[in-house]
């Protein structure tokens, strides 16, 4: 597999940061453990990316420790309390977006129920994320 990692170093740091954190969140969510070492991270990222990330993996992990996302203890790393809280918040937000009612699911009090024109306006407004269904726009 050709890696999806960006070519510029700044974006690659962000890309691998996300990839590493996703592995740790996944392991945590599945109850498979909270402590990882470089070897395990390599296993999860896959052999195809080794050439690209192998030399920099320690650096990426160190950056995550430095920014407070990971806690490092010798060869072992774990998500920090802050990263866990941030992750839960981000996941909750993402989930909220998924379960937010669509236009036809607005309740009877929603102003978009009054006319087709209002419904179109509601859809546009919600597309711009400035209208919660069921609440009037001020």
């Amino acid at each position: 597999m050709t890696s999806s990692a960006p070519k510029s170093e700044q974006l690659r740091v962000l890309y691998w940061r996300s990839e590493i954190l996703q592995v740790l969140y996944w392991l945590h969510g599945e109850g498979l453990g909270d402590l990882v070492d470089i070897g395990l991270i390599r296993t999860y990222l896959g052999v195809e990316v080794l050439g690209e990330v192998q030399e920099n993996l320690s650096t990426y992990l160190d950056l995550l420790v430095a920014d407070g996302s990971l806690v490092g203890d010798g060869d072992w790393y774990a998500l920090s309390e802050r990263a866990l809280a941030d992750g839960e918040a981000q996941m909750a937000t993402a989930f909220t977006d998924l379960v937010r009612p669509v236009l036809s699911e607005c309740n009877d009090e929603c102003w978009c129920q009054t006319s087709a024109a209002e419904a179109e306006a509601c859809a546009r407004a919600r597309h711009a994320s400035d209208h919660e269904p069921g609440k009037a726009i001020t």
Binding site: Y25, G29, F95
Partner: peptide, 22 residues
């Protein structure tokens, strides 16, 4: 890999009882 090939899709599902799972 299957997600990149668009054969599966996934999202984080928060849980009241434990951590969010994919």
């Amino acid at each position: 890999a299957m997600e990149k090939e668009e054969m599966v899709s996934s999202w984080w599902e928060p849980s009241q009882a434990g951590p969010a799972r994919r």
